[in-house]
């Protein structure tokens, strides 16, 4: 058959289309300096977290009481803290904690927000009203205060901080997904899917969600900056990661007492938080341009 012959090479080149899209998005992001900065910082953060044992010069928990509050230098790039621990090594190991928080919060918040939002938006009616009122209740609290309440109830620890942040971070995503879903539910291709016998769940998962995914992804990336800040805030208040852990917020909290004499205790963790949350914001902005449907059509 001639048709078979002609379309075989085409299929081969089309197969890794998702990889191709990913490469296109990355090239697009690298083209603008701000989103390139975000991408590079994020890449660095992942590399640092992955190779923390190799990059860190000291054990992050090793105390050296003869060597406390030393200024940067002498083999300690960023100085030492009040117990003589190397701040650089603690920052390096702390990147693992930050990435864990971001990752866990995102994989909890993304799907929950997406499912609640798309279901409410597609189904409409009473279900929509109920789901959105619940979302409104969550939205009406400032997220840090609500996380504080959750952590106070569950007890202070890193895991509880992650749960608390996840519980407060999904409503904006649900809102967004609902708004998107409402614009698509009347589309002809949804009607066509219904005419083919697709169940509501199938339509939500296969037709609505792919359409909401780009904006949710952008929102999630922008959210990561807030997640880092909230985690640092909880750590600072003593409600997140507990003292020996090298969490950036907790490091600032303990360093606060020595801030006047030993500036390096708060400056470097503060800079780390600033850089990473800035990187996520810039990356989110870049993604907004990269995932714009009109841009997508050009690819």
């Amino acid at each position: 058959m001639t048709v078979k012959d002609t379309d075989m090479p085409r299929q081969a080149s089309q197969l890794p289309s998702s990889l191709l899209v990913l490469r296109n998005i990355l090239t697009f992001l690298m083209r603008s300096p701000t989103s390139a900065f975000g991408l590079i910082v994020l890449g660095l953060l992942i590399v640092i977290a992955a190779f923390a044992p190799l990059i860190a010069t000291h054990d992050p928990y090793a105390q050296d009481l003869a060597n406390t509050l030393k200024a940067p230098g002498n083999g300690h790039y960023f100085g030492t803290d009040e117990l003589g621990r190397d701040i650089f090594s603690r920052l390096v190991w702390g990147s693992r904690i930050s990435l864990t928080i971001i990752f866990l919060v995102s994989i909890v918040v993304g799907p929950i927000g997406m499912i609640v939002g798309t279901t409410a938006g597609y189904m409409g009616g009473r279900l929509d009203t109920i789901m959105m009122r619940i979302t409104d209740i969550f939205l009406s609290f400032p997220s840090l205060i609500l996380s504080l309440a959750f952590v106070a109830a569950l007890g202070p620890s890193l895991n509880n901080a992650i749960i608390a942040i996840a519980l407060t971070a999904w409503p904006p995503i649900a809102r967004l997904a609902r708004a998107e879903a409402m614009t698509f539910r009347k589309a002809d291709y949804i009607a066509a899917a219904r005419l083919q016998g697709a169940s509501d769940m199938r339509i939500i998962f296969k037709s609505i969600m792919p359409m909401c995914l780009p904006s949710v992804l952008i929102r999630l990336t922008l959210n990561m900056a807030t997640v880092i800040l909230t985690a640092a805030g909880l750590g600072f208040l003593g409600l997140g990661a507990q003292p020996p852990m090298p969490e950036w917020g907790a490091m600032i909290a303990t360093g606060r007492r020595y801030m006047i004499d030993s500036w390096w205790l708060v400056t470097f963790p503060g800079l780390a938080i600033l850089t990473v949350s800035l990187a996520f914001n810039l990356l989110g902005d870049g993604l907004r341009d990269a995932l714009d449907p009109k841009q997508m059509n050009r690819r």
Binding site: D188, A191, L195, G197, M211
Partner: peptide, 23 residues
Amino acid sequence: RLERCRLLQMVFQDPYGSLHPRQ
């Protein structure tokens, strides 16, 4: 429902809106 789908189908007015843009 499923039997109805195999009995009747519909072609819509606007081919730009009736095909899922990401499929």
